[in-house]
Design a protein around this nucleic acid. Structure first.
Lengths: 222, 222
DNA sequence: TAAATTTTTTAGATTTGTCTAAAATAATTT
DNA sequence: AAATTATTTTAGACAAATCTAAAAAATTTA
C-alpha cells in the first residue's frame, strides 16, 4: 500500500510519540506536528480506515502492528538519507533533518535497498539513532565506555551512566550530549585521562572517571 | 520563489515541448502529461499569474525567460539524480527516470550544489542529455568519432553523421541509438575495424567506415 | 463564406488536506 | 454530584489540483 507524504508524516509522528505513553492524544500530536486538533482527528479517521491505527473516539490512539511496520519503513528511509547527506555529501549532521524529511517520501524499494548497500548497511544515523533494517527491525546496539575506544575512531555518544548534578554540569561545559560526535585523540596512561574532540568544539581533557561513565555506540556499521 | 511538484512538472514539460514549436498548444501538453485539456488551462492561468509564461487565450503559450530559467533548474536536478542513481547506486539507465522524477522536487540549493560536486560536476546524464550548470546554462558538448576514442572508455552515442537507409539498418541491427552506452574493446589496425560493446548487447565488430560515422560525447565530465 | 469540426476555455464538481468555530464529551474542581 | 474547565470531535469552509460536460472560439471543409 502506498501513502501520501502527509499520511507518512502522521504515521511517523505517532510512532515517535507512542513510545512515551500508553495512548497518544490528539492535542499532543497536533502540537508535535504544528497543526490543529481538528486536522489530527480528520487524519486519524483516515488512518483507521486504512487499518493502521487502534483508535477509540475521545480515548486516544496508537499504531497497530501494520502501522508500526509502516512507520519503521519511513524511519529507515529518513535515517539512511541522513547518513548519506552527512557521510557522502559532507553536510553538517544538525542540518540534514529537513532535507531527509523530503527525501524519505520517495518510496522506491529498489532505491532504498541500493542506497543501503551503497552506504555499507549502516546501523546508526548521524544523530546516534538506530536505523531499522529492511525487515523493520531496530538493531540492538552495543555500547562501550570512552576509555575502551580505539584512538581517533569517530563515535556517537549513546548514554551516560552517572546522571548526577556534577556529571551533568561537566558534560554541559564540554558540550557533550546524547548523539554528540566524539573521538579520542590521546590516552594518558599515567592517570587514565583522555584528550577528546567533540565535533565543533575545541579538543579537551577528561578524567578516567568521566571516561568510564560516558558510553558510545560500539560500531557505526554493526 | 518556490513551486509545487505539480507546477514544476508543467514547467519542465512546456520547456521540452517548446523546443519543437513556436507556440505550445493545450492539447499537446495535456497529451504529454497524460491529463486533460481543462487541467492544463487551469495551470496555465496559474503560471501566467506567477509570471513564468507568455500566454494568450486560444493562441498557445511559451515559457518566458524566468520560466525557462526555472525549467533548467528542475532539469538540472533531474539529470544529476539520474547520474547518481546510475553511477553510484548501479541502477540501469533505462529505469532511473521515474525515481529521478520524484527526487527532482527536493529543492534545497545546498543539496544540489553538494550532489553536483560529489558526482564530479558531470556534464551529461546517463541518457546522453546535457546537464545544465548551476547558472542554468546547457553545456556545449564536444563529440568524437568512435575510431578516435581510447579503448574501454565508457561513452554515450551523441549522433550519427550518415543517415542513409543502409546505415540505419546496421545501427538497428546492433542496437545502437542516440544515448546508447558504448565502449571500444579492441581496434584492429589492419583494416581499422573495431570490436565494440553496447550495454546489454553482446560485443560485435564494426567497420572503420561505420566507426567514422558514429559520434560520442568527448567526455562525461567536460 | 457558411457549416462542420476541432481545439480551448469555462462552469461546476470532487478529492485531499487543512482550517475556524461550535458542539460534544471527558476530566477536574468545588 | 453539579459546575467548571479542558479536550476532542463535528460541521462547514477553503485552497490546490484534478475531472466531466457544456460553451466559446478558431480552424477546416465543402
Amino acid at each position: 500500500m502506498k501513502f501520501s507524504a502527509s499520511e507518512e508524516n502522521y504515521i511517523k509522528s505517532i510512532y515517535t510519540l507512542q513510545d512515551k505513553t500508553e495512548k497518544v492524544n490528539t492535542n499532543s500530536l497536533a502540537g508535535y506536528l504544528n497543526t490543529r486538533a481538528a486536522s489530527v482527528t480528520d487524519m486519524l479517521k483516515k488512518l483507521k480506515t486504512k487499518k493502521l491505527l487502534e483508535y477509540k473516539k475521545y480515548y486516544g490512539f496508537r499504531l497497530n502492528d501494520a502501522g508500526e511496520k509502516e512507520a519503521l519503513r519511513i524511519i529507515r528511509r529518513h535515517r539512511l538519507w541522513e547518513f548519506f547527506l552527512v557521510t557522502k555529501l559532507g553536510m553538517d549532521w544538525d542540518k540534514v533533518h529537513p532535507i531527509a524529511e523530503e527525501l524519505e517520501h520517495v518510496s522506491s524499494n529498489d532505491l532504498i535497498k541500493r542506497l543501503d548497500n551503497y552506504l555499507g548497511q549502516p546501523k546508526i544515523d548521524p544523530h546516534g539513532d538506530p536505523i531499522p533494517d529492511a525487515n523493520g527491525v531496530m538493531p540492538v546496539l552495543k555500547q562501550v565506555a570512552l576509555n575502551q575506544l580505539p584512538l581517533r575512531k569517530n563515535s556517537i555518544v549513546s548514554s551516560v551512566s552517572s546522571q548526577t548534578q556534577q556529571m551533568m554540569a561537566m558534560l554541559n561545559h564540554y558540550g557533550i550530549g546524547i548523539g554528540s560526535q566524539i573521538k579520542v585523540l590521546k590516552a594518558f596512561d599515567f592517570d587514565g585521562s583522555l584528550q577528546i574532540k567533540i565535533s565543533k568544539q575545541p579538543a579537551c581533557i577528561i578524567s578516567e572517571l568521566a571516561a568510564k561513565n560516558i558510553f558510545v555506540y560500539d560500531d557505526n556499521k554493526k
